[in-house]
Design a protein around this nucleic acid. Sequence first.
DNA 1: ATCCAGGTACCCA
DNA 2: TGGGTACATGGA
Length: 301
Amino acid sequence: MKSLYLTGDQLPFNLDLTLSCGQVFRWFREGDWWNGVINQKLVSICQDGDILTYTGWSESEIIQYFNLHLSLPGIISSIRRSITTYSGLACDPFFEYAITAGQGLRIVKQDPWETLISFICSQNSNIPAITRRINLLCERYGSPIGDNKFGFPTPEALAHLDCNLLRECSTGYRAPYISRTAAMVLQQPDMLTRLQDLSISDARKKLIELPGVGPKVADCILLFGYNQMEIVPVDVWIRSIITSAYFQSSLQTPSKNTWSYDDISNFCREYYGPYAGYAQQLLFAARKDLPAPSLPATPGG
DNA sequence: ATCCAGGTACCCA
DNA sequence: TGGGTACATGGA
């Protein structure tokens, strides 16, 4: 058991919020500890103030996984600067609330393959059901790690599976998406690695070629699996938050009263800047108790 | 019970 | 190119 003392721009850090905010589905709180499986290794971590205590992985792995080499205060400053540049206003009180509520939230660096299958599983579902679904898949098709823990299933393990079997993991109509996507990744084993070398928009196009992957799932993979921090996934919550907070006022023009996925995602990227994905995650984490929005900005300028 | 959820594929004009 | 709809399942 080792300890890591967080200092400087590694703070603030909120382990509970980071692991429970719906970006990752394979961590379990057991007492004071969070247990998970990363790269087929059982790992544990707990937080006491500025001290992280851990087993099963190294300090450098922890820093990489939680992006602790990035300055969270710096990210927040960048978002605030972008808001001011876009809107001309000194501050966005609505977004300030999300910053307060999401104090210490970190976007993690997940394995792209696990992120891909996890967010195919996420579509049209809610976080408890997604968590249950993914962990059923791991129990049935992952390799046992010990203490009733399982690794994430490999592409081989999921490819060409009978969809009736996959449905026993509560995957529903997503079952063929999972097996067919696994088959395509199996057929091109370096595909997910090579996405790193493509432009964001090319990587996104390649992801959307996979069955069950549309714009939202692709964007989640880009943000959580590849840490493309400017990418803003738009789910029903973000759509509702952004339209009510920013689009309800003067922009309700007769020609434009519905907003496309790209309208919302692109507005967020312009408004929040290079760390728009981080802004999105703060809003998502605070989605259930955001205040009535003020109206500091409108799309298009 | 009814509606909803970190959406996508498919069809149709 | 864009709008409507079916889809399996479980949570609230």
